[in-house]
Design a binder for these strands. Structure first.
Length: 256
DNA sequence: ATGCCCGGAACGTCCGGA
């Protein structure tokens, strides 16, 4: 089972890139972030023609997450539990082929400190609580998406310059480590512990892509039952170099 | 380094992104 995550920075602006990549990479499941559209504007029919069913949790203009799957999806749940007043569409999960798979878009949190950083940290507390509860199902769990966290200094092109950014601050990293301490495995580092410049994001500005100044912020976290089946994890840089690219590129795992 | 870019909403520019 091949599972990918990709922050597409508007699914409608990115549709040709997404369709092409699906045909080339042949993932079974892709979780998307920043679809930037309401449910009724999600390109369900184009993706169905490409072989994928869609589960969507959209929002006007900002945020929005979705799951694309070649296999049937059941028990679809929208919204991260823990705050009924949270209107931001950043979480959707479904059961697919015996695996519970989530698409998450963790808040950016800048500027820090501030209200947005407080929201990020509070969202992470809810994520930790929900991730803990999912472990009790004894089903393989894959929590995939844009975490907006560089877990360590190797995951940012300029760790000193970014040390006070919400993506790198110790409060953000500490909560990410708490997720791992629950028993989750971060797939890329598990298989590539010493890899450098394994970026998944390059800013549109300042020539970040041609200069290879990036961040590693898109992650797949695996419960023990899923981690036991992890056989590959790769970052596919090719889509970032295309015309009209997203600022993120896909990262995928294979489960045996 | 956040001025540079990009998408959405909207139609002039601002917000959000990371």
């Amino acid at each position: 089972m091949k599972i990918a995550t990709w922050n597409v920075n508007s699914v409608n602006a990115r549709l040709p890139n997404v369709i092409q990549w699906l045909g080339q990479a042949q993932p079974d499941v892709v979780v998307l972030q920043e679809i930037k559209c309401q449910d009724e504007n999600f390109p369900v029919l184009d993706l169905k023609a490409a072989g994928y069913e869609s589960a969507v949790h959209g929002q006007k203009s900002y945020n929005g997450v979705a799951i694309l799957s070649r296999l049937p999806m059941t028990d679809i749940r929208r919204g991260l539990p823990g705050d009924d007043d949270d209107a931001q569409a950043r979480w959707i999960e479904a059961e697919i082929g015996g695996v519970r798979i989530a698409s998450l878009y963790l808040p950016n949190g800048n500027p820090a400190p501030g209200d947005k950083f407080d929201y990020k940290l509070a969202w992470m507390e809810r994520l930790i609580a929900h991730a803990r509860s999912l472990l009790t199902t004894e089903m393989p769990v894959v929590l995939a998406g844009d975490y907006n966290i560089c877990p360590n200094d190797d995951d940012v092109f300029d760790p000193i310059g970014w040390q006070n950014d919400a993506l790198c601050r110790p409060e953000s990293r500490a909560r990410f480590r708490r997720l791992l301490n629950l028993g989750y495995t971060e797939a890329y580092r598990a298989l590539h512990p010493a890899a450098k410049k394994a970026w998944t994001f390059w800013d549109y500005q300042a020539g970040a892509w041609p200069r290879d100044l990036g961040l590693r912020i898109d992650h797949l976290l695996l419960s023990p039952e899923a981690a036991d089946r992890l056989s590959a994890c790769r970052i596919d840089r090719e889509p970032r170099g295309q015309e009209k690219a997203s600022d993120h590129t896909p990262i995928w795992i294979s489960l045996s």
